[in-house]
């Protein structure tokens, strides 16, 4: 079972469940105070505005007791995917490196973007070719990826960048960067390949009924692996 963790103010939790079920996964919303079910075989930190973005986006949810349980499972290799506010929670809690902060134009950016697959050898990207250009929607005010120069070098050296914002031809340019992210980074891995966060919304580009959004999100959600939940 994939647990989609719901905080006060999460609002993409239902979308995530629907998208995962469409792909054949068993997924359930789990209220953060209830803890993780025993049969949790995957974890989604969904988008939204947990705790009204108080202090910093994701900062409050990152302190929720369920995060300790999530970290424990994460270290056992249970796949964890943070999307949008879930990415902010992931970085605030230290699951993934860097920080997501106010967009450079100080605007909420709600649009379709192109992403270049930077590392196709991860569970989240193995459905794509290295360097492939995919399209996903974004909807965020605080998506500018910031990281210290030192950690950025480590990130690049260890191939931890999943996606970069690019133009339709795969060129990583300033014009194609919707929020001023360092090095156009849109998504990164944690210490394990099974832990990933990204600002764009794969769950909003998974159901074929939403033709406009495309279905590139499916490949990312397939990162949860075998569809029969294995607890072993």
């Amino acid at each position: 079972m994939i647990a989609v963790v719901q905080f006060g103010g999460s609002n993409c939790d239902r979308d995530a469940v629907q998208a995962l079920e469409h792909l054949g996964y068993t997924a359930e919303r789990v209220w953060h105070e209830d803890g993780l079910p025993d049969d949790t075989a995957g974890i989604v930190l969904p988008g939204g505005f947990s705790y009204g973005d108080y202090l910093r986006a994701g900062a409050m949810a990152a302190q929720s007791p369920i995060m300790a349980a999530i970290r424990e499972r994460e270290q056992q290799g249970v796949p964890v995917l943070g999307v949008c506010n879930g990415a902010q929670i992931g970085s605030e809690s230290g699951l993934t490196p860097g920080a997501f902060t106010t967009n450079d134009r100080a605007r909420f950016q709600c649009e379709h973007v192109h992403l270049r697959v930077e590392n196709a050898e991860t569970p989240w990207t193995q459905q794509f070719e290295q360097g492939a250009v995919i399209s996903l929607p974004i909807a965020h005010g605080e998506g500018r990826f910031e990281i210290t120069d030192e950690r950025l070098s480590t990130l690049n050296a260890n191939d931890r960048v999943l996606f970069r914002y690019c133009d339709p031809n795969g060129n990583v340019t300033t014009a194609a960067n919707p929020n001023g992210s360092t090095d156009n980074i849109a998504g990164v891995l944690g210490d394990r390949d099974t832990t990933a966060v990204l600002m764009p919304h794969p769950e909003r580009a998974t159901l074929p009924s939403r033709q406009q959004a495309g279905t590139d999100g499916q490949g990312i959600l397939h990162g949860f692996g075998a569809r029969t939940p294995a607890t072993e």
């Binding site: 902060t101 910031e146 990281i147």
Partner: peptide, 8 residues
């Protein structure tokens, strides 16, 4: 631990 984010 909370008030500041050491990255930024």
């Amino acid at each position: 631990r909370l008030l500041a984010n050491p990255t930024i």
